[in-house]
């Protein structure tokens, strides 16, 4: 069972401002039923003062999605749209007394709806569509762009793919975009240089060499082959001879020899030792 705060339970049991405002001054719908949560937000805004005088929501989703929508309406009623625009998903989560990490996407959904409604009121491009236009879709399962992922990474200081999935669902489906998400995290968090390479040493002890070969295969080689439905297994290391077996699609593939020499051997020579020779064992 989720470790929900009492406040969250309270907003789930007795949500505030449920419903739809007739003839709203602004509205937004975000999420969809396929993804398991969706929010329809309607706002009444005083045209002279730009103060949000009323807000109502309808939400399909889990208890934390309902509670997030409920506190969102409480947070924005009485605020000017300029003030409301400063509200982030973190504010929503904090007002609820915290959210389990896997549920952070519920608070993101609230913030997205608010941004979209305000943009619609001001006649701006909807931020979400804007992002779609600007960015390219990274997670095809949930249709999430690099711009959207960059935004949650930046605003919530996310470090891992798992975090990104928890916050915006990207990467939670087939998992093929994990490498792209990692790249976005790296770029967004400012560390522009690639992942630190294992130090290349000229005079490796045997034990260190074996460890480095295993590490390189695990980190740099196998993921690429698995992406093509294949795999690789390290069978033995005899001096500079590295014996490997190809698995899955790679086994019996006509370009196996090419994979072995240009892929595996080249990488191991680059990372470990220039004298390495890779041989395939059937």
């Amino acid at each position: 069972m989720w470790d929900y705060s009492n406040k969250l339970y309270d907003h789930f049991r007795n949500p505030k401002n449920v419903g739809e405002i007739k003839n709203p001054d602004a509205f937004a719908d975000v999420g969809n039923i396929t993804c398991g949560d969706a929010l329809y937000l309607t706002l009444k805004i005083d045209k002279k003062t730009n103060v949000i005088t009323d807000a109502k929501f309808k939400t399909f989703g889990c208890a934390s999605a309902i509670a997030s929508s409920s506190v969102l309406t409480e947070l924005i009623i009485g605020k000017t749209i300029e003030q409301a625009r400063k509200i982030t998903n973190k504010d929503i989560a904090e007002t609820l007394g915290g959210l389990p990490r896997e549920k952070m996407h519920c608070s993101v959904m609230g913030q997205e709806a608010l941004e979209k409604a305000i943009a619609q009121y001001l006649g701006e491009d909807a931020p979400e569509e804007h992002m779609h236009e600007e960015g390219k879709i990274v997670c095809t399962c949930f249709g999430i762009t690099d711009t959207q992922i960059g935004k949650v990474v930046r605003e919530n200081n996310l470090k891992t793919v798992e975090d990104v999935t928890n916050f915006c669902k990207a990467g939670g489906g087939c998992g093929q975009c994990h490498a792209d998400i990692e790249e976005i995290i790296r770029q967004t968090t400012g560390s522009q240089e690639p992942l630190p390479a294992p130090p290349k040493k000229k005079h490796l002890t045997n034990i260190r060499k074996i460890a480095l070969i295993e590490e390189t295969i695990d980190r740099d080689i196998r993921p690429l082959m698995e992406a093509d439905g294949g795999g690789i297994e390290l069978i033995d290391i005899i001096g500079n001879r590295v014996l490997v077996a190809l698995r899955g699609n790679c086994a019996g593939c006509r370009t196996a020899q090419f994979t072995i020499h240009s892929g595996v051997e080249a990488k191991l020579r680059e990372m470990v030792d220039d004298d390495i020779v890779v041989e395939e064992v059937k």
Partner: peptide, 30 residues
């Protein structure tokens, strides 16, 4: 048109224990 977790938590208030195939009860996405 409703999500399983909300149903389970509501049943829970009456001490009724059931389970759901919804993603949100399991931490899954699908």
């Amino acid at each position: 048109y409703v999500e399983g977790e909300g149903i389970l938590l509501s049943l829970n208030e009456y001490g009724i224990c059931a389970s759901s195939g919804s993603a949100c009860t399991s931490g899954a996405i699908e």
